[in-house]
């Protein structure tokens, strides 16, 4: 599974990756819709440079989780975690319920609020470029080598190696290694990245488990309910018949 390692300490916030992304996907100018949240992400901006509380520029974009909440909640399979790693979106299946937007612990997916045929928009890790053997356009563009593309395992190893080599430069943590079950996008940072979460740290358990804890019980519950109801219907009905017969023929044998 491939991924991107973001070395936050190298990011100067030059915005080149954001512009290159917008250009590669032909988004045009940012629109500043009233529905936008203000972090720079929108239906026409799949990534944005946000500022940490300390003033450090940090690139915000889809984490491409190993077990993505958006994929698990989608009732039609419009969101898909591909074998290669990117979480991609199929507009031909989407019915626009926006459950993916609600479920994402990082608040990444955005909606085309100004369209009468609105689609969900989020980074696809340049899946179409990967198919052609190209790098994601942001990785290719970054002038500071703050974005590193590679196999997730190798990126993790590289991240830990960098921490070991320069312990003072980084916090001893690779964000994305375990958060919400881990993600294809990893962050090496000198500042805490909690501000990237929607509202609170997601924890290490994969998000789909939260639903599955319930959904896994559904087949059992349906069978149990059906059995219980059929049984009750029959037993109560039978006992009432018996009781009626006993009342109709006191002392006699049951009907």
């Amino acid at each position: 599974m491939i991924g991107i390692l973001v070395d936050v300490t190298r990011c100067t916030g030059c915005n080149e990756c954001v512009e290159a992304c917008a250009q590669a996907h032909q988004f045009g100018e940012a629109r500043h819709q009233p529905q936008e949240v203000g972090d720079g992400l929108s239906a026409v901006r799949w990534s944005a440079i946000v500022s940490s509380p300390e003033g450090q520029p940090v690139r915000k974009f889809c984490r491409h989780c190993v077990e993505p909440a958006c994929v698990s909640v989608c009732p039609v399979g419009a969101m898909l975690k591909t074998e290669a790693g990117p979480v991609v979106y199929d507009p031909n299946k989407c019915m626009g319920c926006r459950y993916c937007m609600m479920a994402c612990p990082y608040g990444i997916p955005r909606y085309e609020w100004d369209s009468a045929v609105p689609l969900v928009q989020k980074c696809n890790l340049c899946a179409e470029r990967l198919d052609q053997g190209l790098l994601p356009v942001c990785v290719e563009t970054c002038p500071e080598q703050a974005l590193i593309f590679g196999e997730r395992d190798e990126l993790l190893a590289l991240a830990h190696q960098r921490i070991a080599e320069a312990p003072g430069r980084y916090l001893d943590q690779v964000v994305g290694e375990s958060e919400a079950g881990g993600s294809s996008v990893l962050y090496l940072s000198n500042v805490p990245l909690d501000f990237l979460n929607f509202s609170r740290a997601p924890g290490d358990a994969p998000f789909p488990d939260l639903s599955w804890n319930w959904l896994g019980k559904v087949p059992g519950i349906s069978l149990a309910t059906a059995g219980l109801m059929t049984g009750l219907f029959w037993i109560i009905g039978r006992r009432m018949q018996v009781e009626e017969a006993r009342l109709a023929h006191p002392g006699g044998k049951e009907a």
């Binding site: 009732p75 039609v76 459950y99 789909p208 599955w212």
Partner: peptide, 15 residues
């Protein structure tokens, strides 16, 4: 696209 859940079964989705 409201009929899509009928065509694309997603047993891991509550919706």
């Amino acid at each position: 696209h409201i009929y899509m859940p009928i065509l694309n079964w997603q047993h891991h989705s509550v919706m």
